[in-house]
Nucleic acid binder design. Structure first.
Lengths: 187, 187
DNA sequence: GCGTATTGATACGGCACCGTATTGATACGC
DNA sequence: GCGTATCAATACGGTGCCGTATCAATACGC
């Protein structure tokens, strides 16, 4: 995760910032605490970024890059639309249970910041496009495909939400996955 | 909203804190800024609460009270389960578009705070219970009713997410509502 | 190996907020 | 109406963070 060299790069700081965001939102991106967790003093931070805002922007673009189209390539490569959809749903539903801190959810808390709003919007758009495209391939009209994609993606987001705020009550992932595919695979 | 009297009550402070949470999460609950927006100095705050943490707790319980069972009474009163479900879905889907700042979403950014986690959990639980109960009345087995309720409620939450971060792209509410009812009303 | 550019340490001033103390104003029971 | 409890203003010290300046250490091209 951290570079193996002893010296830090700008990207190391951006990743650390992303981790902090996942844990506590934008407010957790503070130069001095980050420096402490990285084992340096903040003096070195200002060799990489001009100020805290620049770090935030770097972290957000890093997140958009890895969670937008680039992170979707794996799924987009699946040729059969039904398999692709089933894959998307089950992977997401099952990935939902580990309490891995999610930057996405944390960023929702900072959605009033225009930079955050833009980043979240881009990631959402990339995913909605893939889903909508998939539903069209399954024979739905463009309008219904868009609506269905929206509802399905909303459900995915919401399941993340529930898993993170209430991990105990999560039913077993299998039941959820079959329920989700049943709901979102029928025309 | 604010008391008509010139003097402030503890609840006035709690409501102001909730508004601040909706706008910027827990970090926005700061005594001095709140005092400024309320038109007083912070000296008066400490006549109502011992410290900032107490205010946060008060605001969270206020939120749980108004958004948990108490806020659901209106829907729980609908006798016919199908009508109740249809009502829940359409009301939520249509209420989703105004960009009213939502405390629920803002609290996601602070879900690592145990008090926040507990509050969100309680509100979610109340709603899930109502939904699950409704699906049982519609004839689903307890297990399937629970899973279905979870997916449906997740979709509702996710639609909130999408509406708040990307209001422009929202398709017209009618299409969404019909899509949602079609998805979640079929057994 | 040497010099330069990059990374890190230390120290400082400034700001925003928390919490306390003290005193002033105002409502309300009696 | 009077006194007491409640709400509010002012002033203070303390803390955590930002950003700058300056100097030390280390990597890397040559």
């Amino acid at each position: 995760m951290a570079n193996e060299s002893t010296r830090l790069t700008a990207r190391d700081w951006a990743w650390a910032a992303l981790k902090a965001i996942a844990g506590g939102g934008l407010a957790a991106v503070a130069v001095e605490p980050l420096a402490r967790t990285l084992g340096v003093t903040k003096g070195s931070f200002y060799a990489h970024y001009r100020n805290r805002d620049e770090l935030i922007e770097a972290a957000l673009s890093e997140w958009v890059r890895t969670h937008g189209d680039e992170g979707l390539a794996e799924f987009a490569a699946i040729a059969d639309p039904e398999a692709r959809l089933r894959n998307l749903l089950t992977v997401v539903v099952q990935a939902v249970q580990p309490l891995a801190p999610s930057a996405h959810l944390s960023l929702l808390g900072d959605r009033n910041d225009p930079r955050v709003r833009e980043a979240v919007k881009q990631v959402n758009q990339a995913r909605l496009n893939l889903l909508s495209h998939t539903y069209r391939e399954l024979g739905l009209s463009p309008e219904r495909a868009a609506s269905r994609a929206r509802v399905a993606y909303a459900a995915i987001l919401g399941l993340m939400h529930l898993a993170q705020t209430d991990p105990a009550t999560s039913p077993d992932a299998d039941a959820l996955a079959t329920e989700a595919t049943k709901v979102f695979l029928t025309p």
